[in-house]
């Protein structure tokens, strides 16, 4: 397998280099299965910890869609994109039927109390009276909640199930999307840095 390299007076001798290259190549061939195994092992290992439910959103860096909808709180009044905060805010998709929404409510409540960012809700495919009851029972972290009973706004937002949370900048552009419940870890490591980045950019 290994070629014996003849000692040469000139280390840059072309033939010697060729011999050495061949020796290295044949040695590499020996390791090919091991390398293949390692590559596969690393990929599969990583795959174990990827959540197949978190789809990459195509809506990052796209403006929020237009809408004309009522809210849970404001009765008959119709609001649209222009009525959303003109500073960075969170858009949280929720529903009274959604258990993870209940789970993340205390974190959103705390954030609202500390005035971190305004939080706007999207009440997704829910019933108005149930939504109102849920907010009464659990407290509302929202400035208001857009009433998306048909789920049409949800489709435009690429939503496929509550809870989903968007970080939106002052220009109404989606900058980050979190799918699923926001726990303390997600708040600290994902939502807060995303908000901070958007705010820092706005400050400039």
């Amino acid at each position: 397998m290994l070629q014996k390299v003849k000692p040469s007076p000139n280390p840059y001798d072309r033939f010697q280099l060729k011999f050495e290259l061949e020796a290295v190549m044949s040695r590499l061939k020996l390791f090919a299965p091991v390398i293949g195994f390692l590559v596969l092992a690393v990929m599969l290992w990583r795959g174990l910890y990827l959540d197949p439910r978190t789809l990459p959103s195509v809506l990052i860096d796209k403006p929020l869609p237009e809408f004309q909808l009522q809210t849970v709180e404001l009765g008959e009044q119709i609001i649209g994109k222009a009525d959303l905060p003109d500073e960075p805010f969170l858009l949280n998709v929720w529903g009274s039927y959604c258990l993870p929404c209940l789970q993340e409510n205390p974190i959103l409540m705390a954030a609202a109390e500390q005035d971190v960012v305004p939080i706007v809700g999207v009440n997704y495919k829910d019933k108005l009276n149930l939504a109102q009851l849920w907010l009464e029972d659990n407290g509302s972290p929202f400035e208001f909640s857009i009433l998306d009973e048909s789920g049409r706004l949800g489709i435009d937002l690429g939503v496929y199930g509550a809870p989903e949370t968007f970080v939106v900048d002052g220009d109404g552009v989606i900058r980050y999307k979190h799918i699923g419940v926001i726990d303390y870890e997600a708040w600290e490591t994902e939502i807060m840095p995303a908000i901070a980045a958007v705010k820092a950019e706005a400050g400039q």
Partner: peptide, 11 residues
Amino acid sequence: NGGVAEDLRRE
């Protein structure tokens, strides 16, 4: 029969 599938079929 997920909610979003129903909506998307409608769309």
